[in-house]
Amino acid sequence: MNSRSIADICRDNERLIIGASAFAAFLVMWEGFSRGWWATLLAPLLGESARALAIKPIFISSPTGVAQQSWTMFAITGEIWPHIAQSGGQLVVGLGAAIVVGVPLGLAAGRYRTFSYILDPFLSALNATPQVAFLPLFVMWIGTGFWMRVLIIFLLAVIPITMNALAAVRTVDPRLLKVASSFGATELHTFRTIIAPSALPFILSGMRLAVGRSMIGIVVAELYGSATGIGIMINMAGASFDTDKVFVGVLVIVIAGLLMTEGLRAIERRFDGWRPAIGDNM
């Protein structure tokens, strides 16, 4: 009983093994297309038409090309750091502003019915619009600099934050609110001790959605202008057929997105106990 058979170990880690092999197979396929392995391998079978299986690296890059380019850009020339700093700065300011505006707005609309009636048509309309369509308008108003990009990130992020904060107040246990008002608690006191704690988990979920949205802002807002930023780096590399660089930029965004959403998910889990149980408030 002391040694488990290889078959057992395989069965227990099936998920990891299959996932990792699929990923490895993908990388090998990719590298093979770019280096013409498949073309050479299948040439005896397919003849002339096998040549279509060799795809020029300027179209698809290759895993090794991307790895090498990342190493160069991160460690040797360090040229990627200013781009990351610029985009990160925009993200922090835009997202921060969205939280500062969206949370109180949503809480107020959740608490005061009339205010929610006023806010609702604007919120629904903005939510249904692909907000990036405002981009040319913002460019006209404030140019193509830092603040334009902050504005688009803000607009993308503020909507899920407001909507979640609004929905959060609606889930507060009405019994608690009734008790508070019976005992003459002030509005501020009620907010601080009842509404804020039970709304927090929902607000955090809203922030997680907002992070995803603001990544769209980073990429799209940097379509305009020609300073630094990850989005601009991707666009310029794309325009000059520097596909390795494009993939490095995409990879940076993938990793940043995964890190931020996972980080927020961890915080969310930490506060999950504060979430009022559904159906508990009758």
């Binding site: 990429v219 494009v246 995964l258």
Partner: peptide, 24 residues
């Protein structure tokens, strides 16, 4: 198990990031 990792990665990034590659 096989497709999960790819879908998770694609879900974490705004797909509009791939625009330059799609144009290429």
């Amino acid at each position: 198990y096989a497709l999960g990792p790819f879908i998770d990665v694609l879900n974490a990034v705004p797909r509009v990031t791939f625009m330059p590659i799609m144009v290429l």
